[in-house]
Design a binder for these strands. Sequence first.
DNA 1: GATATAATATTAACACTGTAAAGTTAAATC
DNA 2: GATTTAACTTTACAGTGTTAATATTATATC
Lengths: 201, 201
Amino acid sequence: MGIKERRAREKEHLRQQILSAARELFVNEGYENVSMRKIANKIEYSPTTIYLHFKDKADLLDSVCKETLLNLLNTLEQLKRDTTDPVETLRKSGKAYVEFGLEYPQDYKLTFVIRPQFQKGLGLDEGSVGEKVFDYLREMVSECIQEKIFRQVDVETTGQVMWAAVHGVTLLLIDFPDFPWTEKDKLIDTVIHTTIEGLKA
Amino acid sequence: MGIKERRAREKEHLRQQILSAARELFVNEGYENVSMRKIANKIEYSPTTIYLHFKDKADLLDSVCKETLLNLLNTLEQLKRDTTDPVETLRKSGKAYVEFGLEYPQDYKLTFVIRPQFQKGLGLDEGSVGEKVFDYLREMVSECIQEKIFRQVDVETTGQVMWAAVHGVTLLLIDFPDFPWTEKDKLIDTVIHTTIEGLKA
DNA sequence: GATATAATATTAACACTGTAAAGTTAAATC
DNA sequence: GATTTAACTTTACAGTGTTAATATTATATC
């Protein structure tokens, strides 16, 4: 039954085409400014064809964001982990997280700010990629606590504090590019350093 | 010339009517889901009347956000400041900031996340309310540094770190209400405490 | 009090939006 | 070759932000 497979392949191919056209447009022009017709034009299909592959525009956004989370997870997992110093690993991961956000600012905002607005049910459900990202963070924090480097607060809270710090600085840098920030890398490093020091004590 | 003044008063009154109708709708239904026609209906005027008072929808958003910043500034300035302990004052202010964000989550998001998307030139220009909010933060941080409680990093960076922390936790709590957060107040307190401790060291 | 003037509000229209329903076409199965 | 199935398009609807032209009102001038 090679035909069915070819068909399925073609279908998947078109899905990917739509997805990558949508991502490119969303990222360059902003989710609100991209119409289904624009996406359709780009891939040279009629607008309604998109609806054969995605429920609606929000679903399309959803799929784009899932990819972004996957990319973020890959970026983090590809980090060479320092097996002797868990704090150094955490520091590096935090830095990588922020840098990911700044490298793909629109992707980041789409995933962590725009999407929650449309999909109330967040993307951190059980087994989701989003959950895996937070699992990664939890794991690293856990090591720091186990080795008694960090205060013995529970892992959850500690991880959430770390997340808040990197999320905050990432969004501020993205959203207020004209603000007279301290030199970018210095700011990021200070945020991460400060948070880690605060978690020790 | 009492007539002109009355006219001006009436005009201002209508402006305020539009503004408060817009805020209520933006906050309850989300900026994207509110149409000019909806706002007009609410105040029982024709849609185009709004354009006699505001340049466009983004300008309307802009004005709503300016009010929010003013409210935030008032909230912060009404805080009873502990004159003997600047750190305690900073802690209280941080807490008040986050609580403001959580009390008016849509206002907060509108101001600090949605607006920057439409008005690239942020709202932190010289002399603006936004700048005053940051000035307030800078002042408090400065006291902590002067009294040699904080590390002798420059005031700017220190303030920005603090801002990143509270901004981060505020947005996470708003955007991912279903995430299994640590008890809310504990999380906020830990974020602020951790950041302050990290700034001492 | 009638008329001109200015301010204020409205109607009509344009080009665009997301998306549902119906219609078309081509390929696969019998 | 006829029929079913899948993929895709056309058409249509109700709604969007916004502009230009028009109408209405209230004030100022004569």
